[in-house]
């Protein structure tokens, strides 16, 4: 059996960094691990998905419909778009912010503001305004590490391991602020 994590968001939100931290956690815990990333055209503000799987032996590098233990969403609409990848009763961590896609901006369609309401009860949904928390921590750009901290509440990995991996993964200049962001998310401060 493997642990299946899916990170979704808008190109440029840093899903790659988050999946690489999760990959580091798996290595640190001695598991086999595979990550799947998105590069190229889709990154330009489009809907992006990265996968992390770890366990005794991991075969395919992707998480498929109905298989994710944890869905980490950096944006509300993207959480809804990929909800069906979660297992029944899986954990959905949502950075509850709205980034309008170009199809909404241009007036072609409406943003479904209450899009997550119908999913209540299906999954364990945790909403957080990580952008606001990150701002409070000192830099709006570390919102993704705040969200990761919230997700870490459900993953049973020691705090020290998280901090060590974050230190080894993020750019050296941003280690302290990322640790602070992570702990704020983890401890719900």
């Amino acid at each position: 059996m493997s642990v299946n994590i899916m990170i979704v968001g808008v190109g440029g939100q840093g899903t790659l960094l988050t999946s690489r931290i999760l990959g580091g956690i798996a290595i640190e815990k001695g598991y086999d691990v595979k990550l799947s990333e998105v590069h190229g055209m889709a990154q330009r503000g489009g809907s992006v998905v990265t996968f992390v799987r770890y366990g005794e032996q991991v075969r395919e590098p992707i998480v498929e419909e109905g298989q994710a233990d944890v869905l980490i969403a950096f944006e509300r609409l993207e959480a809804a778009r990929y909800h069906h990848f979660l297992k029944k009763g899986g954990v959905m961590i949502v950075n509850d912010v709205v980034i309008q896609p170009i199809t909404v901006i241009s007036g072609a369609t409406q943003y479904p503001v209450d899009v997550l309401d119908s999913l209540e009860g299906k999954y364990k949904i945790v909403k957080v305004d990580a952008n606001e928390i990150a701002e409070r921590v000192g830099n709006q750009r570390v919102f993704n590490t705040v969200v990761l901290g919230v997700a870490a509440r459900f993953m049973g990995v020691e705090k020290e391991v998280w901090l060590k991996v974050i230190e080894n993964t993020v750019p050296p200049k941003t280690v302290e602020i990322n640790k602070k962001a992570f702990l704020t998310g983890l401890e719900n401060r």
């Binding site: 808008v10 055209m41 889709a42 503000g45 109905g66 609409l77 069906h84 979660l86």
Partner: peptide, 18 residues
């Protein structure tokens, strides 16, 4: 087949110029 279907009618989010 997976039991849960994707949500219908969500706005697409294609890539855009920065």
């Amino acid at each position: 087949e997976p039991s849960e279907a994707p949500m219908a009618g969500l706005p697409a989010r294609p890539p855009v110029l920065c």
